[in-house]
Amino acid sequence: MIKFGIIGTNWITDRFIQASEGVEDFQLQAVYSRTEERAKAFAETHGIRDWFTNIEEMASKDHIDAVYIASPNSFHCSQAITFLNKGIHVLCEKPLASNEREVQEMIAAAKKNDALLMEAVRTTFLPNFQLLREKLHTIGTIRKVNVSCCKYSSRYDAYKDGTVLNAFNPAFSNGALMDLGVYCIYPMVVLFGEPKEIKATGTMLDSGVDGSGSVIMKYDEIEVVSTFSKISNTHIPTEIQGEDGTVTIDQIGEFSTLTFYNRNGETCSYVQQEDYPPMYYEIQEFVSVIKAGEKLESLINSYNHSLLSARVMDEARKQIGLVFPADR
């Protein structure tokens, strides 16, 4: 059994626990929260044996093999390195860190301590993403990609009323690019690699983060236009255009339905089977890599993919003037 600890007690950790129930050799052992009341309540709700309010104490106990980090982005680097330095494997929510420099530090700690570090971008493990990679050649030479992830944040109403919650606070390395833009950028890096050129625009809020924006990634033959927003919604699917056909993805964060359109008018749709919750597949990959024990790195959410994604977002932030305390 791989004994897990969890950092964070929010809705995403609830979904993580639900998804982990189908993963063989997964055992939930510990939880951390900043407050004793929250840690104890979460542990009781989910039947977790150990709870902590101190990260160092949690990492020093010889009772967990791995940890899932779902804290605010600005804490990812320091928390991950604390566990990695103890030889504890780390599955860390996207984005992996505030910037590329922090990602490099985390990877160095993982390699030094023979521990697995993996970015928890769930979409790249979903069956339909794997199917997309297998069948992408059928649409011929790819020319243009329009990818969108725009979801009006429930926290934006509080923001407009004068309350700046974590989602719109630069101290936590947040904003539209970091929260939703990564869903657009990371899969494109996995599919096409590092872009030759990046052009970014953004709508900056008074709090100092971006409410929405776009990033154009230019390759030798492909132009990828990514749009993302936390202050508006979209109902337009992602589209990959090739010379021989087009494929649409209903939601870039879900990949539940792929539809291929041939130039001759033929169409074919693939609906993802709902055998497991979406987060199941990333947990299964993480556990499988640990148990294989040969090379402690995912071939899909690899170190290189995390570095390239962070590099793209760093350049985009530079162009729109989005600076975090973690950058200084």
Rank of each mutant, 00 (worst) to 15 (best):
M1V: 08
I6N: 00
I7D: 01
N10Q: 07
W11M: 12
Q18N: 04
A19D: 03
E21P: 03
G22W: 00
V23L: 05
E24L: 04
Q29R: 09
Q29L: 05
Y32G: 08
E36T: 11
E37M: 09
A41M: 10
F42P: 02
A43L: 03
T45L: 14
G47S: 10
I48W: 01
I48Y: 01
W51K: 05
E56T: 13
E56K: 14
D65W: 07
V67Q: 00
S71H: 04
N73L: 00
H76Y: 03
L84E: 05
K86P: 02
G87Y: 09
V90K: 03
V90L: 02
E93R: 05
E93T: 06
P95V: 10
V103E: 06
M106V: 10
K111S: 11
L136E: 06
L136K: 06
I142T: 02
C150V: 03
K151L: 11
Y152T: 10
Y156F: 15
A158R: 11
P170T: 12
A171S: 15
F172L: 03
L177M: 13
L180Q: 08
L180I: 11
G181A: 07
G181L: 04
V182W: 02
V182L: 07
A200V: 01
A200T: 05
T203V: 12
M204N: 01
D206S: 15
D210P: 02
S212V: 01
I216P: 06
K218W: 04
S226M: 05
T227A: 05
S232H: 12
T234M: 05
H235Q: 10
Q241K: 15
F255I: 04
T257E: 13
N264R: 04
G265R: 07
G265V: 08
T267K: 13
Q273L: 07
Q273G: 08
Q273Y: 05
Y280C: 03
Y281T: 04
E282K: 07
Q284K: 13
E285A: 07
E285L: 00
V289C: 04
V289I: 13
K295F: 14
L296I: 12
S298Y: 05
L299G: 13
I300P: 00
I300V: 15
I300D: 04
R311T: 14
R317T: 08
Q319G: 12
V323R: 15
V323D: 09
P325N: 01
P325S: 02
